[in-house]
Nucleic acid binder design. Structure first.
Ligand SMILES: [Mn+2]
Ligand SMILES: [Mn+2]
Ligand SMILES: [Zn+2]
Ligand SMILES: [Zn+2]
Lengths: 144, 144
DNA sequence: TATCATTTGAGAGACATTATTAATTGAAAA
DNA sequence: TTTTCAATTAATAATGTCTCTCAAATGATA
């Protein structure tokens, strides 16, 4: 954990931002709940346990900042709000998500396998790909 | 155009819905503006020209219905609202989108090339894939 | 310790979307 | 054709997510 906080501090300092207790607390919640894809409101509820006076606006601001610094990623899983997750390996393209249309479970896919498609796109469309978001919709093991 | 409306009428009837002038008008706007990725508000503004008394809530309801009937698809392109497009070939998986992080231009990619990845997912995760949404983020030809 | 730009919490505000409700419509029955 | 009645509509209120504003607090630096 401490190494992630150090990395946060470094990235913040690089851009002239400060490492505040609130920012530390928000990132800790996101890391501790890895794989949960928490919304801002959910992060707010958890972070208040250790940081009771934090304001919701601060959570929103911190999340925006963490996203800008590439420390977290934003997901949209079709349920009306943005959700967030920690970028374990910095600079890596994002993993994929399987969304079950029956039970709404979200499953993570760690294999990427988009190299060939990305290569074709770069060549045929002259588009430089920096990241991707891939969602598959269907039925999970239990629901099909 | 008329064949798409006939298809709409058929699908509506199948489920006990009626083909109203409002529903016809909304679908016509989406088809006529293919590739535009219109938002609900944008559809509303265009459809009012031929259908001045239509209400915004009706446009929202119609879009929900068209999506449920698989006549249109919902996109989320990170600009704060849902956007929609006509599903030309019914039952086909959805094409991909390239989103330029500099000028916000959205480019469509007609090639799919996800077969291998989808195959691996079905085998390794026991997940039955019915559709996907794929967005690539980066720099377009003009911006890189 | 004094300075001062950054950050914060509280609450107002903006915006997209959904719910409510009374009136209208239109397809099937009489 | 007229009657019937559930489906649909327009208008508008309500909701939920997120952003903005601003005065107070904080914390790095001198
Ligand atoms: Mn994930
Ligand atoms: Mn498209
Ligand atoms: Zn499921
Ligand atoms: Zn561009």
């Amino acid at each position: 954990m401490e190494k992630f906080i150090d990395n946060l501090k470094e990235k913040l300092k690089e851009k002239g931002y400060k490492l505040t207790p609130q920012r530390r607390a928000v990132l800790e919640v996101i890391i501790t709940n890895e794989g949960e894809h928490l919304s801002t409101e959910e992060i707010y509820d958890i972070v208040k346990k250790n940081c009771p006076d934090i304001g919701l606006a601060t959570v929103y601001r911190t999340i925006q900042l963490l996203d800008k610094l590439d420390i977290i990623s934003t997901l949209y899983l079709d349920d009306g709000c943005n959700r967030y997750e920690f970028n374990i390996q910095n600079g890596e393209h994002h993993h994929h998500h399987l969304i079950c249309e029956s039970c709404s479970k979200v499953i993570e896919v760690k294999i990427d396998l988009l190299e060939k498609l990305e290569e074709e796109i770069q060549v045929n469309y002259g588009f430089e790909i920096l990241d991707h978001k891939v969602q598959f919709y269907g039925k999970c093991e239990n629901c099909k």
